[in-house]
Design a protein around this nucleic acid. Structure first.
Lengths: 374, 374
DNA sequence: ATAAATTTTTGTCACGCGTAAAATTGTTAT
DNA sequence: ATAACAATTTTACGCGTGACAAAAATTTAT
């Protein structure tokens, strides 16, 4: 199954004889005669400036005299000291830190959202700490607790949704200025930024009915995701708005393995001929990816051409939907815009002192992306 | 583009009038007469026990007398106090925290690895903090610095690879007990856990040559990933071992958008007929996913059947490779095993006091996964 | 009941830093 | 040179915790 090579490089072993005391670990890279800099105290002594002045410098380099600044920066060159961010957070009245929580990092959409959020916060001079709930309520709670200890000036929270501990989130939001992202919880947090599910579904339904048979809706019977519930409702509304009968194809399954759920459910639906029309609109792209795999296995040709058996469309513009076979027609979740706006909203919130007078909800419209699958 | 609904829910506004002082924010959930518990000092007073005893309790509940334990736990019920993890880390000689760094969380493979690592560490009673380098050397450096401040007992580090600051990582590893993951850096860290690239490539090359034309190798010209370099070498060795001429198809591109790079490179290679054989072995599954999309667009049938124009295989068993069309034949990177072993190795390292006598390298063999594409 | 062992309390120091007031030094204007 | 002002240093305290020694209280053994 596996094997172990000991000392495979043959070059090291240098630290094998080193003792465990923290000093000895540093003897290697210590030019003799130079002191070891661990704390701001040490660094202040080494640079010939008092510790509070050093503290002031790190808070705002422009707030100290030029000659002092130069001395500090000279010492900085030599010792590359950096203050302990967690000690700072413990003591500053208003931190330069923000927290980010996403429900599930293994979902590429959230991975992208997290990446953008982190970048924006860093660009604004903040230190960002990222947490993933990994789909588990317990881990979401842990993340909230950690964030409390971190004392961030603000938090961007994309909650798990149905399985969140609503009361705990509400309490957290009263303690820490929080912007909700992607999934709204009515009345909780200082603001919400997300997508307008109605514009998602109405666009896809409009397009599909205009260009062919009206779509049935392919979804999970018990989605953990509140956006799924909203899309379900919007589909029904949109169909009724066209004077059409809604057609639901619901698949079983729990958790976050949506491609697998879409595949299994798709196989079953195809075997049992449960699709009442030749057009399938999936609640999200991950289910669609699974369905496409099932269709391929069944030998069905997907697309809007004459030789095609089925049209398949999704929602979200998942990073991989460009690369499915055929490429997936979908409605883009503008997660870059949502992320940018979320980060910006949080920064405004922090500048405003942590509270807004009114709780705003910013919803981005979706953008239809036509590709070959429908 | 987007619109804002102010006060859309119509139910809230309760905290709109709350002042900014930390006390007033808590009046809402404060049963009058009960003190607000923020620190261990407060909590000790509320539970009628001294603070050091409370501290002892949290360190090890079994270390205090039963009657004392019950008093603390009764108070815990009432106030749900939790010690500040960052303050703890600052003071404990040996922390119950570990750090995890992965190079790119938006890659589902690393997202899965991170998730498994985190879970294992939590199960072992540790507090895990996850960092993503997001593909940027600067962010990897930041993560290392943050971890220094966090004072973890150990770190699991999957480095960026080529773009890592090797010296900085070396220095870090001398300060903090570190297990390297997925990508080895010779001699750095107390141990390495990863995959045996040779077994990957030899298995795929063996299988493909046995069942059809020998494969050409589809890869990036300048991969940032050291595993890619290793696989390149292993492909050449494997081919020569069969007495065959290695055939390389190298595509341009930078960064982490591998599907796109595979797609663009694949389109070009197909247009220019650069594939010298009907069998394409991709350096990793993400490139393969892009190539499959290009093949679909070109109308090429993929698979090992008689009506097929091309066989395509990959490496890694990417979470989506099951759902490509056709499903991708690949060699599984056993990232669950790697994660488990990595976590276990770190725990052993911590128990051993942070240093191993010998630097071990544990390599997992790959597992051939036959699907329809080759 | 008394002595011995265990547990808890008290007190004090530590960690690495922010912060505020007072004392000192440096700079500029006159 | 002197006053006026700004920048800096000193001093002292705080944050929320761990760690350790000595004293006090409790439990257990005899």
């Amino acid at each position: 199954m596996f094997f172990v090579r000991a000392n495979a490089t043959g070059v090291e072993g240098s630290h094998a004889s080193a003792a465990n005391s923290p000093e000895s670990a540093h003897i290697g890279d210590l030019r003799l005669g130079e002191p070891i800099i661990r704390t701001m105290e040490d660094f202040a002594a080494a640079s010939g400036v008092s510790r509070p002045t050093v503290s002031k410098y790190f808070h705002d380099p422009g707030s100290v005299r030029k000659s002092t600044r130069e001395r500090i920066e000279a010492a900085l060159e030599q010792y590359d000291y950096r203050p302990n961010i967690y000690a700072i957070n413990q003591n500053r009245q208003l931190t330069k830190s923000v927290g980010i929580i996403v429900p599930y990092l293994a979902d590429p959409v959230f991975a992208e959202i997290a990446r953008t959020l982190e970048r924006r916060c860093i660009e604004a001079g903040f230190h960002a700490t990222l947490f993933s709930s990994h789909g588990e309520r317990k881990l979401e709670s842990e993340a909230l607790n950690d964030l409390r200890s971190l004392r961030p000036s603000g938090v961007l929270l994309a909650p798990l949704g149905r399985s969140s501990d609503r009361d705990q989130i509400a309490r957290f939001c009263e303690e820490v200025p929080t912007v909700l992202l992607d999934r709204n919880i009515a009345g909780i947090g200082e603001a919400f930024v997300g997508s307008d599910n109605q514009s998602f579904v109405s666009q896809s339904v409009d397009y599909l009915t205009r260009t062919g048979e009206p779509p049935c809706f392919f979804e999970m019977r018990n989605p953990g995701n509140p956006n799924s519930l909203a899309r379900h409702r919007c589909y029904i509304e949109a169909m009724e708005g066209h004077g059409l009968e809604p057609m639901l194809v619901q698949v079983e399954g729990e958790g976050w393995n949506l491609e697998e759920i879409g595949y299994q459910g798709g196989m079953r639906a195809l075997q049992e001929h449960s699709f009442p029309t030749d057009t399938v609109l999936c609640s999200n792209d991950r289910l669609a990816i699974g369905l496409l795999a099932a269709c391929y296995e069944k030998g069905l040709r997907i697309g809007r051409g004459s030789g095609c058996a089925l049209r398949v469309a999704g929602h979200d513009d998942h990073p991989y939907s460009r690369f499915t076979c055929p490429p997936l027609t979908t409605v883009a979740h503008e997660y870059d815009l949502v992320s940018d706006c979320g980060a910006e909203t949080l920064l405004r919130l922090i500048e405003a002192g942590g509270r807004f007078d009114d709780r705003t909800e910013t919803l981005f419209s979706a953008r239809l992306v036509l590709r070959a699958s429908a």
